[in-house]
Amino acid sequence: MVRVNLLGHVDQGEVGTEPYRVDRDGRSYVAVGDGGTVLGLRLGESVFHHVGDHAAPGVCLVHPSDDARHALVGLACLGNRVTVRTGHAFGHVGSVLGKRGGGQRVIAVFPQDVLARLRPGDQVALLSCGQGAAAPVPGLTQMNVAPAALSLLGLTVQGDRLKVGVRAMLPSRFVGNGIGRPMAMWDVDLQVDSDTAATRSLCLGDLVAISDLDARTNAGYRRNWMSVGVVVHGASPQPGHGPGVMVVLSGPAELFSVGVEGEDHQPLSEERLISAAKGEGRDDA
């Protein structure tokens, strides 16, 4: 695997000239937490609890040059080490959680006291590694996850199948924004809300499975396929949007053994993720 040090900038988030967005029932609202650094939202919390729009549990990272931003987002993988290089949080280490399409942002988690010291414009070094890694089972495609973080996902190889425990399994018709986009660069939003039975207990950091979705390149409908991803941001009032899933594995459904764990599912923990990122950043490779 090739590791590349990337430069990221702490994001401010952007709002257009009008403060309002429109929810799926036509009501206006002011979007909170759509990019930037969000405090008080943690991995393991419900995607529906807070008043937010695509709010991510940590800091969003961008690059002022569009092409460099595409590379930053495309190469960043779950578990990659993120080291603050400037500002009051200098030297602190966090981990990539995921990425968001459209606005093209990397999402990174840090301890809350470090997040509070970050300021938009601060620079970080992101040690990218993971794209191109082989999946644990032949026939599956893996992406967006650092080798050192794979063990956090609770995967087990059973013969020629990969056993994975998820919070929920949804059919592809629930996939909204992100469909038709390259999955090395985007997440897919689930068109669910707190009334959707299958995802009522959905939390940030959960694994979910999406049936009949082929996400090896662009995400698209394909019968008898399966894609598994990590929930990287919270819900959204906008039609066609919702909690974001960054795909990490995709392939024929017969190569997966998916266990739907519901309330018993354990989401990724901030501590374990950051610990894995610190391990990945050692200069021993």
Partner: peptide
């Protein structure tokens, strides 16, 4: 059917269109 809805989901419906897979 809803399974066919592709790129365009989540966008304004006065702009562009809904690609069907």
């Amino acid at each position: 059917p809803p399974e066919a809805i592709g790129a365009g989901a989540g966008m304004a419906s006065e702009y562009a269109n809904t690609d069907l897979m």
